[in-house]
């Protein structure tokens, strides 16, 4: 049996249905636990209590990028191996990715207000996330605009491919354009810049929580899409007969 067996809709529904309750519990515990733990951490001597925002901002930013990468992989699997569930999973992931990007942007803006003295700064990192949000919106809009599911899956797949290249290109173009105020990556491994352990562990829990939450959401949304497609397919068959 190959791993591609799970791309069969019936099998996917069975396996995901069995796994979902456990995953949902784990996601709820980790996400809420991580956020609550983060909320109770002591203040940072420099940033004060705003450091608590990191437990939302960083996991959301991480997922915003990872979800796009997952969509790219799912699109490639669809375009190359023609697994229908894969195309639907890419479609299901997009709104979750857009919300993650929105959270990263919103928390970034709220955090930036006291730190940089402005709600919005055209900092390369914030700008990149704004551009990423535009790509998510375009992708979602294209899916909803095309009626025929086969064309929609193919065209959004091609858009995801081209979009990935340009999202990456924009990231470097933006760096060239403005050097920015944003601190380095928060989980940087360089010695001396390491985050204190008081913050590190709750952050790990929160990141795991966001990842599990994404898995749950993408499974639920893929199941929704499969059911919708099945209903449409049954209606189409009835109409043809």
């Amino acid at each position: 049996m190959s791993i591609w067996e799970y791309a069969n809709p019936v099998k996917f529904m069975r396996v995901s249905g069995a796994a979902l309750p456990w995953l949902a519990i784990a996601a709820a515990v980790c996400t809420l636990g991580g956020i609550a733990w983060g909320f109770l951490t002591p203040e940072d001597y420099k940033q004060g209590s705003t450091v608590k925002i990191v437990f939302l901002h960083v996991p959301a930013a991480m997922m915003a990028i990872n979800i796009w990468v997952m969509m790219l992989i799912a699109s490639l699997i669809w375009l190359i191996r023609r697994h229908h569930v894969s195309a639907l999973a890419a479609k299901a992931a997009a709104p979750v990715g857009a919300v993650m990007t929105l959270i990263a942007l919103a928390t970034g803006a709220i955090w930036g207000q006291p730190m940089w003295g402005t709600w919005w700064e055209w900092d390369p990192r914030l700008t990149s996330f704004l551009i990423l949000l535009l790509f998510y919106i375009g992708y979602i809009a294209l899916w909803s605009a095309i009626e025929d599911p086969d064309s929609a899956a193919d065209l959004t797949g091609v858009l995801c491919l081209v979009g990935s290249v340009f999202a990456l290109l924009s990231r470097y173009a933006v760096l060239f354009w403005n050097q920015g105020l944003h601190q380095g990556a928060s989980l940087s491994v360089a010695p001396g810049e390491r985050m204190s352990e008081v913050y590190r562990y709750p952050l790990y829990v929160s990141m795991l929580g966001f990842l599990l939450l994404f898995l749950v959401l993408v499974l639920v949304r893929t199941r929704t899409e499969i059911r919708r497609r099945r209903l449409a397919a049954l209606q189409a068959r009835e109409m043809r007969a």
Binding site: D150, A153, R230, A233, A236, R237
Partner: peptide, 10 residues
């Protein structure tokens, strides 16, 4: 191989 979405999910 199914011909398209409508066949894959019927």
């Amino acid at each position: 191989r199914p011909a398209g979405f409508n066949e894959a999910f019927a």
